[in-house]
Design a binder for these strands. Sequence first.
DNA 1: CAGGCGTGGTG
DNA 2: TCACCAAGCCT
Length: 425
Amino acid sequence: MSDRPTHSSPTPELPSVRNTLRDTEALYTAITTATRGLTQSSLPLHPAQAHHPWPDFLVQALRRALLAWYADQGRVLPWRNIDDPYAIWVSEIMLQQTQVKTVLPYYQRWLAQFPTVETLAAADQQTILKAWEGLGYYARARNLHQAAQRMVSDHQGEVPRDFATLTTLPGIGKTTAGGILSSAFNLPHAILDGNVKRVLARLVALPVPPAKALKDLWQLSERLLDPVHPRDFNQALMDLGATLCTRRQPQCDRCPWQGHCQAYNRNSQSELPMSEAKGPLPHKQIGVAVIWGDRNQILIDRRKQEGLLGGLWEFPGGKIEPGETVEACIGREIQEELGIEVAVGDRLCTVTHAYSHFKVTLNVHHCTHLSGEPQPIECDEVRWVTLDTLDEFPFPKANSHIIDALRAYAAGQPTLDRGESVPPA
DNA sequence: CAGGCGTGGTG
DNA sequence: TCACCAAGCCT
């Protein structure tokens, strides 16, 4: 439970939410009151409230201070100081909602495997998803593939250099387009990623969650952008957010903008930016089948392109209905989705996993194929495979635990359990 | 336009 | 432990 101020709609039946709302109002009142009293360092509190524009001398001072800090303290990253718009584009996509440390090994492997737009466009999707396996948000990989094909067919195999064309490509929105254009071509396009939102929200002591002030934050990012050094300025702004102006324990004593930061001036940097109050994630119980066929083969299926984990392989199964046993669920789901009869046997393992918007418990059972030819009724493809060829298929993280348990089972070892199994109905 | 869409790190 | 968050985009 976070103690940070949050912004939420009134929910009368929940006292904690009422308190949260009161905190929000108190903070807003404190900030606006303090701002009215300020005569110096007169940054507008909130761009939309600011009838006066940010004066040039102030903007220039901010740019100079940030660029000087960046020249000295900026990070060294493999997608910087390179002349390869394709590689920069790949890095921008991988870095969406993903930390630098996580991206680094994927980025290096990706460029070795798909060194150019043409090689990426020509690859098949399964190969691409395998290279992306474990990175999450798999639509990014599917979109990267499609965009590469369009660059080849419509743009001479090159990354487009204008904002309008770039943003028509799948997976490239406003921030990614700005990142590519500024980083690859040093063109003056602003960005507004998580780092920049946090830095700017603190700079102006934004009294609402950034999501409620996107238009204003974009205007501010555009106003501050150095038109002469857009590449360095954007990178510097992100570095500031990633290394000093972090969400927790920001190092304000080392910040080049300390003297101009409204959050620091009020000592509210640890309270900002404000976050949206979100409820607990729903938890789903899933029955999963490891279906054994002839010659020690196992049945897996490829998920549909759209939606969760699109294009990845999995062990078939589905949601346990209220009052239903795991065994009954598995038998029903396999009949509905694959059109075959199985005998549901012993439990192999139980896996809990948290996605971005819900949690699951996978109740995995051994099954024996009885009759019928598997049909791809609610998936794109089904295939019998042996245990030692599972590596060739891209699987979601939750399924890798099942594979581990399967290998341990095949090796005659005791199985590993994670989470709680469903009580019998 | 709020919610769908992964995974690993963190306090 | 577990809720929250990290270089967002799409519908």
